[in-house]
Amino acid sequence: MKEINTFVNLYNSVWNESDAKRRREIIAELWSEDATHCTHSLEAHGHEAIEDRVLKAYEKFVVTGGYVFKTIGVADEHHKAVRYSWAMVPRDGGMAVAAGTVFMLLDDDGRIRFDYQFTDVLQAS
């Protein structure tokens, strides 16, 4: 696995990435081919479904909503598990409208096998 902060920053960057080719490259680099990404309301299995999930979030929150996703605090990892906190903030500055935690379980190659996204705070925007 990459150094933890590099890993988390790359993971977080995919949600803000405007270039479709680069998004696919990041997904292929970080997630195993049989990875699962979960939120409370959805499950995406495999690179194609994860790419679709990321694209929909990008279009809804970054393009249309004018937000960006940022890491918060320090990431933590041990025993093939990674956890970090994130926030969705207005691109031009201001208070976070959403924040949460990502918990990932990695495979033996250091790629994401299971990716759980939790939303801790959601404000009306």
Rank of each mutant, 00 (worst) to 15 (best):
D19F: 03
T6F: 14
S32G: 13
I27Q: 05
G110H: 09
T36Y: 12
R91T: 08
D115F: 03
L42A: 13
V14A: 06
I26R: 01
D107K: 08
F103P: 11
V14T: 12
L55A: 10
K60D: 11
K2H: 05
M104A: 11
R91D: 05
T101P: 08
M104N: 13
E33G: 10
Y58S: 02
G66S: 12
F114L: 04
E51I: 13
G66I: 14
G93R: 02
M88K: 11
R24L: 15
E51D: 15
T119I: 07
K2N: 01
T6S: 15
E33F: 14
A99C: 03
Y67D: 01
A20F: 04
D107V: 05
R113M: 14
A20Y: 01
I50P: 01
L55V: 11
V14E: 06
Y58K: 03
D76F: 01
R83M: 06
G73W: 08
A99T: 08
G73A: 06
H45C: 10
V121F: 09
D109L: 10
N5S: 12
A75D: 08
M104F: 04
A98G: 05
V82I: 10
D115P: 07
F114T: 02
F7N: 04
D52P: 00
N12A: 11
M88N: 06
G65P: 00
V8I: 12
G46D: 02
D107M: 08
Q117G: 08
V63T: 12
D107R: 07
D76V: 00
H78V: 00
P90D: 06
S85L: 00
E33T: 08
A28V: 08
E17T: 15
N12V: 12
D19N: 14
G93K: 02
K2P: 01
Q123G: 07
H79A: 11
V62E: 01
A98Q: 14
G65Y: 09
R24G: 12
R113W: 09
L10D: 15
M95F: 04
D120Y: 01
N9Y: 11
D109E: 09
F103W: 11
W86N: 04
K60A: 10
M95N: 09
V68P: 01
Y58A: 03
T101F: 05
H79S: 11
L106T: 03
H37E: 12
A99S: 13
E29L: 15
N16C: 05
V89Q: 02
D108C: 04
S41Q: 14
Q117S: 07
S32L: 09
L42S: 15
W31L: 07
Y84M: 07
G73M: 05
D76K: 08
N5A: 08
Q117P: 02
Y11P: 13
A99V: 00
S85N: 10
D92Y: 13
S32K: 09
F118H: 11
T6D: 15
E51Y: 09
V54Q: 02
H79V: 02
G66L: 14
N16L: 03
K2E: 05
S18N: 14
E43T: 00
T101C: 10
G65N: 04
A28M: 10
A124M: 05
L55W: 03
F103V: 07
V121M: 13
A98E: 12
L122V: 06
A75M: 03
D108I: 00
F61V: 00
H45A: 09
G100T: 06
E3P: 04
T6K: 15
